[in-house]
Nucleic acid binder design. Structure first.
Lengths: 225, 225
DNA sequence: ACGGTGCATTTTGTATATGATGTGATCCAA
DNA sequence: TTGGATCACATCATATACAAAATGCACCGT
């Protein structure tokens, strides 16, 4: 017997995953219209799974659906970006507080590893990946899967803009510096310092992010949502 | 001519809202199957908007969709319930910290009001409403709309079970006590006390909730998800 | 210029058909 | 009787075709 195909997934999920990937890596620009017919053809499905996938992505905050006017890749106001990062900050610091006492040499090594890898790569995609690994390793031991996936979702809404940040400023350099500081304090088990540094890092990110978004929207008519 | 109907909403949203309401108030039991054809007839639409509504609710955590086996009202493991309340706790205490310095007599009065109303009503639905109003009033002045709506979503996943708690234990009495304590500290502007009491209140809730869920699932086969 | 008219595009929803999948009943053999 | 294989049926998942409604735009006459 053939060992059965890799489990044929639902086409809705396939479409949603493909679209999500495209949106996350900026292949489809912010504000760009997502026409059902076009997408259906592109993925070789009918418009039904496409509609469902769009709704799914809308629930994740990556797409906004304007009734009777179709879906577009969601934009993000500076305020929203700031708030998303605040939420992330709140959750992450709490997670780190839980995880820190459980952190062992393995965790330390893996965090250092991803930090190292992120430093060595020139590729933006890779950097984003390693960056996520670094952060999530810090609170892996907290054992709070839903909280982590929540942060993941928040991140997805922000990532496209971080990407811009990476190419347009010294963000990457500063982030690396801050990551090193965080890791150092983390290794020492210094909870207060880690939280403070992590908070500072995210605050810093939010500031720059808001600026980039503001500037990016400068030419556009408001209400892109 | 005719003053136009009250703004005909998208039927997907109408279905989603109606279903959400039913799920939240327990009209449809946990684990109950949501058959597309049945729902379509009930709401007088075809199965397409129904599918989309189900996906929406799945994203909100109220429904779980099992590929090729349909959707059921989502269950919640004790662990998940605990984690959801932890998230809520983390976010709420942070919000309160931000809101407390901005709280004025109006806020105090409205919080006291909803607390009062919740005390006077015998109706469970009303109690839930007033309870939400009480909590959300506390951090209204934080001006963090997304954070609040996030908490709202978390709450929706928990509410059905809190409802059980209300009918089966002295939870309501204890909650009222704790609410009074929280409000007292809040009025004094004592941040540390408010956060500590609020945290205790939610921890307390989570303990009882986990117990009720455990007990409720006792007879059921595991994996209701 | 200006405001309305009508058309094309697109979304939204219905109806219906078809294949796939899971469920449960049935039947057969040990 | 019990266990397992089989089959029929219900339901899901998706496709196709089509109709209705909303939106945006080009066109037109003033």
């Amino acid at each position: 017997m053939t060992p059965r195909e890799p489990v044929e997934r639902l086409s809705v999920d396939a479409v949603a995953d493909a679209l999500r990937a495209d949106i996350l890596r900026g292949t489809i620009a912010v504000g760009e219209a997502l026409r059902q017919e076009t997408l259906a053809q592109r993925f070789g499905v009918s418009h039904i799974p496409v509609r469902e996938a769009l709704r799914q992505l809308a629930a994740e905050g990556l797409v906004s659906i304007r009734p009777n006017r179709g879906a577009v890749v969601a934009s993000l106001s500076p305020d929203e970006a700031t708030e998303l990062l605040e939420i992330r900050c709140t959750l992450e610091t709490q997670l780190v507080r839980w995880a820190l006492p459980q952190a062992d040499a393995d965790i330390h090594a893996r965090a250092a590893d991803s930090l190292d890898l992120s430093e060595r790569t020139a590729d933006v995609d890779r950097w984003m990946e390693h960056n996520w690994t670094f952060h999530s390793t810090l609170y892996e031991r907290a054992g709070r899967p839903r909280m982590v996936s929540m942060i993941r979702t928040l991140n997805n809404q922000i990532d496209r803009f971080i990407r811009v940040l990476l190419s347009r400023s010294d963000y990457r350099y500063r982030a690396q510096e801050e990551h090193h500081a965080i890791l150092a304090a983390y290794r020492l088990g210094n909870e207060v310092a880690v939280c403070s540094l992590l908070g500072q890092h995210l605050l810093d990110t939010s500031k720059q992010l808001a600026a980039v978004i503001e500037q990016g929207n400068a030419g556009l008519p408001p209400g892109g949502r």
